[in-house]
């Protein structure tokens, strides 16, 4: 699922490039160009939102002898 979100960011950029090229090429009627513009603005917002910074987490994944998974913060130079 995560993968698809990531792919869609990439394809959003690609689509945005296509839209810009189409608009620069002219030969569009008003309705089409407004629709493209609207789509382009939405894609831009989507991309920027994707890039919005989440709080970065640096964690460490270990498995205890009984097979349980343990995730704890990782501090460099601690070990």
């Amino acid at each position: 699922m995560n993968n698809q979100e990531k792919l869609s960011f990439e394809s959003a950029i690609e689509r945005l490039e296509t839209i810009v090229k189409q608009m620069e090429g002219g030969n569009l009627n008003l309705q089409d160009s407004m629709a493209l513009y609207e789509e382009g603005v939405k894609l831009t917002n989507f991309c920027m939102k994707e890039l919005e910074l989440a709080q970065q987490k640096i964690e460490k994944l270990t498995q205890t002898p009984d097979g349980k998974i343990k995730i704890e913060p990782f501090l460099e130079g601690e070990e």
Partner: peptide, 22 residues
């Protein structure tokens, strides 16, 4: 990445403006 998006956004706006002017 942000630079790239900003550039695309500028082109997009320029595109629609040119078009509307025409």
């Amino acid at each position: 990445l942000k630079e790239q998006i900003a550039q695309l956004s500028t082109s997009l706006n320029r595109g629609i403006n040119t078009h509307l002017n025409r």
